[in-house]
Design a protein around this nucleic acid. Structure first.
Lengths: 221, 221
DNA sequence: TATATCCTTACGGCATTCCGTAATACAAAA
DNA sequence: TTTTGTATTACGGAATGCCGTAAGGATATA
C-alpha cells in the first residue's frame, strides 16, 4: 500500500473523513492541507527531503478566503504537479460530475483517478486507491462513461463564455461588444444570435431565460 | 457533555469527519445515518427503548437515489422531529448560507444551532455543541446576522412561483395564463410585468435573464 | 483555377419585453 | 356613504430578442 499520501481539500470535515479512511487502509503517513499553495509547498519540501509523496488526493474547487493564494483551483494545482512531479499519482475527489470536465482532466493532465463525492464516495475512494496502487486508472461509475462514449453535446469554451456573459445580464448587443473588445471571434451581433439559437435548440430551451436556467442547473456555468 | 448523538448526512466522507470530531469531544454513543427515514426510525427506536438521543446533527439536502424515501429533505426531517420530540436538540450542518433559509428554520422549527459547512466547519460545530449543551443557541458567523438584522428583501411565495415559471421558459403572456388557470392573483400580463420589474430592481438585475441567474445563485429557486 | 462547404456577418419583419402613464377595482378609514 | 389609499389592470411607444434569408469570406477538394 501507499506509504505517504497528501489530502488537499478545503473543507475540514471532508478532509477528516478522508483522513480516517486512509488510516483504516493502513497508510502510514497522511498529510492534510486546506490550501492549494500549501499542497505545492509540502510536496516540494518532501521531494527535497528525499521522502516524496506517492499520492495526492485533491478537490477541484477551493473556496477563497482572506488568505491570498497563487494557485486558485485544484485544476491549477494538478497542472503544476503533473509538470513538476510526473511520477506523482493524483486522484481528483470532487462533487463535479460533468463528463466533459472529467474527460478534459484525463486528457490534459492524465490524472490517475477521478472519484465523485457521493453517498458512497469514500468506498469509491478506497477502490480507486487500490486500483492506482496497481498502476491502473480508476473512475467512479458516475463518470466512467467519460472514457468510453461520446454522448456529450459539443459545448466549447466559447459557448461557456457566451452563456456566462448572458447570465450576467448583458444584452446580445453588449455581448457582441464584449467579444470584440476581448478579441474573441465570432463577435458580430448576428453570430451571437445564431450561436445562442443553436444552444437553445441543443438544450431544448424555449428562450434565453430558460437556456440560462438550464445550463445553471447542469452546472455548466 | 452529550452522551448520545445522531448524525444525519448523506455524504459518507462528511459523516465520517463529523463522527471523528464527536469522538474527540468524548461523546460516547454516536450513530450515523445516510437517509432521513433511517434517522426518524432510529430516533423512535431509541425513544421506545428508553435511551433517547439527546442531539441530532443533520444536513439539509439529501441526494435521492434508488432507495425510496418518505422524508425527502433535512427540513422535512426537522419538522417531524420537533413535533414528535420537542426536547430533542437539533443542529443543522449545511452548506446553505441563505439568511432567509436560516431565519425560517429558526422561526419555524426553533432549531438549536445552525453551522455552515466551511473550511472551519468542524471547529464551528464543536462550538455549537458546547453552546447547546449549555442550552444556548448557536449560529456560525456566516449566518449569525439572521437573528439580528432584517436586511432581507420581502420575497413571498408568489414571487417564487413567478420566478420558477419564468425559469421554466414561459413567456410573460404564458405566465399570465398559468396564473389565471391556477386561480392565483394577480394574473394579468400587466401585473406580471410590474412584479418582475420590481424583482429586477430588488435584485439589481439588468434583465429577466440576469434576474433568473441571480435568484438561482441565491438558491431561491 | 474552379467548385463546394463551412463560418461569419448583414438585414428585415415580427414577437416579446421593457417602462412609463393612467384608468379601474377593492378595501379600510372617516 | 364618501374619502382615501393601495392593488390590479390597461395601454402605447421604444428597445430587445427571435427567426429566416442571404451575401461575403476562408479553406478544402477536385
Amino acid at each position: 500500500m501507499f506509504k505517504k499520501v497528501l489530502i488537499a481539500e478545503d473543507m475540514q470535515d471532508i478532509n477528516k473523513g478522508v483522513h480516517t479512511t486512509l488510516c483504516e487502509l493502513g497508510i502510514q503517513e497522511i498529510h492534510e492541507v486546506q490550501y492549494c499553495d500549501d499542497a505545492l509547498l509540502k510536496i516540494k519540501k518532501a521531494q527535497a527531503d528525499g521522502a516524496p509523496f506517492e499520492l495526492v488526493i485533491t478537490d477541484l474547487s477551493f473556496k477563497s478566503d482572506w488568505r491570498e493564494q497563487n494557485i486558485q483551483s485544484g485544476e491549477d494545482l494538478i497542472s503544476v504537479l503533473k509538470k513538476e512531479f510526473p511520477n506523482l499519482k493524483i486522484i481528483v475527489y470532487s462533487i463535479e460530475v460533468r463528463i466533459q470536465k472529467v474527460r478534459s482532466m484525463i486528457s490534459n493532465y492524465n490524472i490517475n483517478g477521478y472519484v465523485c463525492k457521493t453517498r458512497r464516495g469514500l468506498l469509491e475512494l478506497t477502490k480507486a486507491i487500490a486500483a492506482i496502487y496497481k498502476n491502473k486508472q480508476y473512475l467512479s461509475p458516475e463518470v466512467s462513461q467519460a472514457l468510453s462514449t461520446k454522448n456529450t453535446l459539443e459545448i466549447d469554451d466559447y459557448d461557456i463564455l457566451l452563456l456566462t456573459q448572458l447570465s450576467k445580464g448583458l444584452s446580445q448587443e453588449e455581448i457582441s461588444q464584449y467579444m470584440k473588445e476581448n478579441q474573441k471571434t465570432p463577435s458580430s451581433l448576428s453570430s451571437i444570435e445564431k450561436r445562442l439559437n443553436k444552444l437553445r435548440i441543443d438544450f431544448k430551451a424555449n428562450n434565453a431565460i430558460h437556456l440560462v436556467a438550464t445550463v445553471k442547473d447542469l452546472g455548466l456555468i
